[in-house]
Design a binder for these strands. Structure first.
Lengths: 257, 257
DNA sequence: TGCTTTGCGAGAGCGGTGCTCTCTGTTGTG
DNA sequence: CACAACAGAGAGCACCGCTCTCGCAAAGCA
């Protein structure tokens, strides 16, 4: 990511810290650009998003926009981060609302909660967000634009959903509410090493469970992509019941029932 | 194109009576355009594919290209169909090579075949094709370009892989080599009607099996998309062993072992 | 055979894009 | 107050998809 873009992000972070008028105006205009770009993204898609159109809508000349975003790709990058965060926020909020006690930062003593119900709520929230924001979903889970290389900044927002799944499974596991998965194969070799990275995040969870969680993770987004991108037309369309059944069968696949 | 070449083409046309030289030349140039476009697609991606660049490489002026493809989207459409067909061909050929007897048009009496082995071979072939042709994969399984609406022409090539999965499962089923899936839920309501469309294609297959097959289908392409689009970087990358394990667990999920 | 219709490539042109560079005026700072 | 940093405007470059017109050659027809 470019230094100018990092500068923008830094400014927005400390926006209300009483900086100079110029910096304040810069942060504000920067947000406005993002907002207009997001709106255009929703209508014309990532491919059709144009800096000139954004600048036109803002009443400024296109070259001025480059003071804020050094290239179209940089603008897309912040939109990508925002999309990941919005999706993660939707998923985490669904977990909280369904009564999960493990949500980060909540820490309150748990009442009774149903792990399966939370699982279904999270998956449904992910799908609902994707259907409500198809272009933003396509931006982050569709084909990467050009030779686009995801900057390191996008990694952390991108893993919020799988991290939530890990947290849910761990809480259910420590409460003894997960089936044993005796018939699931234990990862070996390279696969075991890769899964070990996840085990470090959730001590105590069996590797075979985390491996299955990764499988379910890919299934979830494969299913949503198929629905949004039209691959289910003619068979499982509308996909509501298919999604629900798949979600529950995949929940059983990781031991939730 | 040179006049000498046109003359050659005309002579060959006279030998293959029926089509005029003009039609023959048109078909040939049309193929050449497709070929150049496919090569450019592989390097610059769908978004970067440009009619002007194609025409430049062919030594003609861009406006002439519109005699063959009325728009950029039309060119992309034939590339999409070709990609679907290439992928389907790769999958079917892998099934044949692994000794499957159900392949369309083969009809030969089967020797012994291992359904699970064929299953793994087909899935691996799909992944291998995707990795070898990432831009074409992204073209058909990534975000749909623009407000692109898939023409009816693309449907039939698009379902070759799932149809192959159905055929494999049916053959294994009639040979009594599929587990019973007693714990799998039977689809009801709308979902049962949707699955009924698949049952019509494969009489005798239990609806709950076909439902699971659809789940596995979405998992397969979700996994491949994640690998190609960079979502597995940092966890299951490289994805060879993850893919293999997932494939086999999903095979067990539909009763293959 | 000669005439007419059809198809094809070339060329110019329109409005759009991302991006760069220069110039002018303003704002913040020593 | 002077100087440096910065923001916006404008022109311009090289591309893009697409349209239109204009000759010319091939195909169809009398």
């Amino acid at each position: 990511m470019s230094r100018a873009l990092l500068s923008v992000l830094w400014h927005t972070e400390v926006m209300n810290a009483g900086r100079t008028a110029r910096e304040r105006a810069r942060a504000e205009l920067s947000d406005e650009i993002k907002s207009v770009a997001r709106r255009q993204l929703a209508t014309v898609g990532a491919e059709g998003l144009s800096l000139r159109a954004v600048s036109r809508e803002l009443g400024m000349v296109s070259s001025a926009l480059y003071r804020y975003f050094p290239s179209r790709d940089d603008l897309l990058t912040v939109l990508i981060i925002d999309a990941y965060d919005a999706l993660g926020e939707a998923a985490e909020s669904a977990a909280e609302k369904s009564g999960a006690s493990f949500a980060v930062g909540k820490g309150e003593a748990a009442g009774a909660w149903d792990p399966l119900q939370t699982w279904v709520a999270v998956f449904s929230a992910v799908r609902a967000w994707a259907r409500a924001n198809p272009q933003e979903y396509a931006l982050i889970y569709g084909s990467p634009v050009l030779g686009y290389q995801a900057p390191q900044t996008t990694v952390q927002p991108a893993i919020r959903v799988p991290l939530l799944m890990v947290a849910l499974l761990q809480q259910a596991h420590t409460e003894g509410r997960l089936a044993a998965l005796e018939d699931a194969p234990e990862p070996t070799g390279v696969l075991a090493e890769q899964v070990a990275v996840l085990v470090a995040l959730a001590p105590g969870l069996p590797p075979r469970l985390l491996l299955r969680m990764m499988i379910v993770w890919t299934q979830l987004f494969g299913m949503i992509s198929f629905e949004l991108f039209g691959q289910l037309v003619g068979s499982m369309d509308p996909a509501d019941e298919f999604f629900d059944s798949a979600t529950r069968q995949m929940a059983a696949f990781v031991g939730l029932s």
